[in-house]
Amino acid sequence: MEADASLLISAVVSGLLLGGFYAAVSVGVAISFGMLDIVNIAHPAFILLGSYVAFIGNTVFGIDPILSVMITLPAFYLLGMLAYQVYYVAFERRDDQSLRGLSFFFGLLFIAEVGLILVFGVDYRSVQAWYVSGNLNLGVVELPWRLLVPFLLGLAMVGALQIFLARTFIGRAIQAVAQDQQALRLMAADPTKIKRIAFGLSFATAALGGAAMIIIQPIEPSIGREYIGRIFAICVLGGLGSFPGMVIAALTLGVVENITATFFGPSWAPAVSFGVLLITLAVRPSGILGR
């Protein structure tokens, strides 16, 4: 009994930490899908691109994995802008968004993944840093640094973006653009430019999410696929357009998955998380904090 309780506590705590990491990889989709209504299923491929940047910075130049990604953030921002611009010219401008737009991102996912395989092969890669091993001992619980650092990174990213979205003119325009593009023009804002900026930010968060991912686990190019369902589930569960909702959903999923894995075995975890999604949506179709 005693042992079960401490097992439960540790499952909850590391589940919360895992949830913070889920927030880190989901926040970009909370922007592109939650705010722009663009289903970028290629997002996880760019998370992995971020992981490989961290890997190269770390193994070739001996730099800290997170710092490696930080240095290349402007490049990811521009890459995101470019991806949106291509999508805009090829699909959105022609009012051809839904189905063929999805095929565009499918193609992008495929190209990015094949590119990563060609360049990096299919071997598992990992990074070295002081926080990849060891624990923070808090007496009652021990927090592994390799979970704690991604957790903090995730919360810092969400917090910074939340402030940006709520307090700046561009941020508010990003929240508004999918609701009524024509009306946004009447605010003197160019909707295409606003979406380009948002997409750039989304890609930049993917890169940082990638640094978090390679800290938590060794990666290989196809690992991103495991995350597509989970990331979209978190965004829908939290309520589209709501960062706080997305974080609550990410933490919930982390905890539920971890408890399930601890007591019933890891293979049950995905089933349970989608169960949580289905039940929540049955009770609250707009998600936890959806507007």
């Binding site: 003119f169 508010r172 609701q179 024509q182 009447l186 605010m187 003197a188």
Partner: peptide, 30 residues
């Protein structure tokens, strides 16, 4: 709009999922 011509369109065209204040602040994007 940026030149200084404001427009209240037919059907109002508010941002329905933003608050009153957020709508007003967007008005001042210019």
């Amino acid at each position: 709009v940026d030149l200084g011509v404001g427009f209240v369109p037919e059907g109002r065209r508010l941002f329905p999922k933003l608050t009153v204040t957020e709508n007003l602040l967007l008005g001042a994007f210019r």
